[in-house]
Design a protein around this nucleic acid. Structure first.
Length: 272
DNA sequence: AAAGCACCCTGTACGC
DNA sequence: TGCGTACAGGGTGCTT
């Protein structure tokens, strides 16, 4: 699933197309377009030049000439690929943007959970998001305050985009493992030392994953905008590694369900 | 505020 | 071989 590092990787790849003009657009699955109406969506895109590509949490923010912003959330199975001219059709293509150099931006999404929004005011979509985990404002002290003001279990809290923007199931489990805290720990019970470890773990795991261009699991197919897979899966300590030894202590990794989400942990390193 | 659940989707795994 | 069913998962919305 595309989480912060995957979306960041895609944003970087998409910057390749900055300066190009959209000469055509096609919506093949109307519900992928959250707003405006798909017909209006296409009308407003065509003729616009791409001015910049950014990211906020798991949202991709594409700034367009004329003041519009194309926001894209990849959901679970979304891919955004900048493809050269002459590439064949793809079964799961939901939205296509034709560029003036012949290339196309293809938004593919087998499970149809992804969404695109065209808006002049991105804040309208993004304002509810929590802080950027890699941003300057996300300090250990800030995290301490955030955690102290809540009393939820860590795992669902870290997955909550209104609390912190960008973590998904993979990096939440990896960060908790690195910090050596249990996913069921209540947020307001962490010691100062544990908060520091968690803060550091979140930032390090995300930064390393960006360096590796994200995580591509064998059974799922995330790829960057250039079509290349990420390699952070080689660094995963717990996610999808049930029964395999903890890289730190050798204890077999366990899987529990928290808030309906599969959750991976080392029962020895991460004591409840 | 926290937590549980249904829902949106479909590929895959699994039992028969 | 093929069918039915459960499940995964990000996010939203509703209910308790």
């Amino acid at each position: 699933m595309p989480e912060l590092p995957e979306v960041e990787t895609i944003a970087q790849g998409l910057r390749e197309a900055v300066g190009r003009r959209i000469v055509g657009a096609e919506v093949r699955w109307a519900r992928t377009i959250a707003a405006p109406d798909p017909t209006v969506f296409v009308q407003r895109l065509v003729g616009r030049r791409l001015l910049g590509v950014g990211r906020r949490g798991k949202w991709l923010v594409i700034r367009l000439e004329g003041g519009d912003h194309l926001l894209i959330h990849l959901g679970m199975s979304g891919r955004l690929v900048l493809e050269p001219e002459g590439v064949g059709e793809e079964r799961y293509a939901r939205v296509l943007l034709m560029l003036d150099d012949g290339r196309r931006v293809r938004f593919s999404d087998p499970r149809k959970f992804g969404r695109a929004v065209l808006t002049v005011d991105p804040e309208e979509v993004l304002e509810g998001l929590g802080p950027e985990p890699l941003g300057e404002a996300f300090t250990p002290e800030r995290l301490r305050e955030m955690l102290a003001g809540r009393r939820a279990r860590l795992k669902p809290l870290l997955l909550n985009q209104r609390f912190l923007a960008g973590l998904g199931n993979i990096y939440t489990d990896e960060a908790l493992w690195r910090a050596r805290v249990h996913p069921l720990r209540r947020s307001d019970t962490l010691s100062g030392e544990e908060v520091l470890r968690l803060h550091r773990a979140i930032r390090e795991v995300l930064a390393e994953a960006i360096d590796r261009r994200g995580t591509t699991l064998e059974d799922r197919g995330y790829v960057g905008a250039d079509g290349r897979p990420g390699t952070f899966n080689r660094e995963l300590a717990v996610y999808g590694r049930v029964g395999r030894p903890c890289p730190r202590c050798g204890t077999p990794i366990e899987r529990i369900v928290v808030g309906g989400r599969g959750t991976h942990l080392c029962p020895r390193c991460q004591q409840a």
